[in-house]
Design a protein around this nucleic acid. Sequence first.
DNA 1: CCGTAGCAGTTTGCATACAAAATGCAAGGT
DNA 2: ACCTTGCATTTTGTATGCAAACTGCTACGG
Lengths: 239, 239
Amino acid sequence: MNDVRNREGGVLTKAQPIARVTLHEELVARLRDLIVEGELAPDVRVPERTLCERFGVSRTPLREALKVLASEGLLDLLPNRGATVSRLTQADLDEMFPVMGALEALAGELACTRITDEQIAEVRALHYQMVLHYTRKELPQYFRLNQRIHEAIMDAAGNATLTRMYQGLAGRIRRARYLANMSKARWDQAVEEHEAILSALAQRDAARLGRILKQHLQNKGETVKESLAADGDRLSRTA
Amino acid sequence: MNDVRNREGGVLTKAQPIARVTLHEELVARLRDLIVEGELAPDVRVPERTLCERFGVSRTPLREALKVLASEGLLDLLPNRGATVSRLTQADLDEMFPVMGALEALAGELACTRITDEQIAEVRALHYQMVLHYTRKELPQYFRLNQRIHEAIMDAAGNATLTRMYQGLAGRIRRARYLANMSKARWDQAVEEHEAILSALAQRDAARLGRILKQHLQNKGETVKESLAADGDRLSRTA
DNA sequence: CCGTAGCAGTTTGCATACAAAATGCAAGGT
DNA sequence: ACCTTGCATTTTGTATGCAAACTGCTACGG
């Protein structure tokens, strides 16, 4: 599919469009990474000039990138006073997790109606790999697999609009999750919930999967909250 | 609250920050209106120069605004080939209404847990005013009140993150609703659903309100779909 | 001693300038 | 007649320049 016929009737498989990325596009991606990974601290003014030198570009594309990131909520732009990484407060997180819950619950419900057996098998594979990391107490790998499972369900939902909103929110939350740890009890609970997620998905039980995911996200929120409370607020002081 | 004490102990009510709006900010708002109201047709290239002359600004702030609107999904930006208003396809709408349903359902549930009697009274007032317009078959006024009711519930939910995502999606959907009409049966049904919404909200029955709103949005989606099917696809050819 | 005013340096907002890419058209070839 | 090719024009992407706003410091006055 997606082939094209030229005049003589010969078939030309449509080539991948050459990836020509404009500077501002690239800058948006790079800056987003810097912010998510905490390299740029919240509330610290980052002069445009500094960033320009860092990336070797002029101010014009950089400013375009800043505007985009501000509209995504990662930066705050004060007129005539430049950009700061927006601080993620506890209140922000309290707001974000319920929204994530609603989006993921919808994704789960939609996924149940259209997921293929192959896709379920893939989620199952990811799941068991994740459980393996759990038994080995490998938290970073666990997180990575965890994220991939949620993304796989999101993909199976087949709703690009939903995915976009999910990714936007997930990107902001990830900043917090970078710092968060997990108590043993929470980790046990999360894995149990993932067992239930897999089971509901395999049975294509939309209502149940929706409920579980909503609860799962609420618990994730609690986990992050506990972790931050324990740590002291590292979100503020990360260099 | 939010007052500030100066050195002598006198109270200074914190004044509204002077609205100094930068050009690109203003441009984002104005362009958004042009797009939502259909003044700029989908898929038509709009050269930057034209817009610059229209607004009397240079290309720099205009381009910053274009990047933001593109990140909101209202524009498509093709490298070296400028901006076009993104076409709202039937498939897009099919994706958007379920997401709206999930967001509004969450808003309803949250609202039930924190809404005050005064806020309920206000929603009730809006509701009866809306019903009045319904009995008089005043569709535009009906739409306006309808929108305000949904926004009032959103406000009552007290979740700024949720509100932002809702507004973003609502802005895009509104483009379609501008053109949509309603059959008598659909209109009757919508008003009935709004009665149920008011009732559930007044009883602060979160679960029920959530279910009703989700269904309500699904029906709205069906209504728009029918309307577009009847009209032929006006979204494509609006001048 | 504290507080304010004024000034130099910095930073931002916007306009303009220039290079690369795309578009449209006309001339030439098949 | 159609398709290709090359060139002039338009449009976009990025860099630079300039004026206005902000920042921090010093000096002056109470």
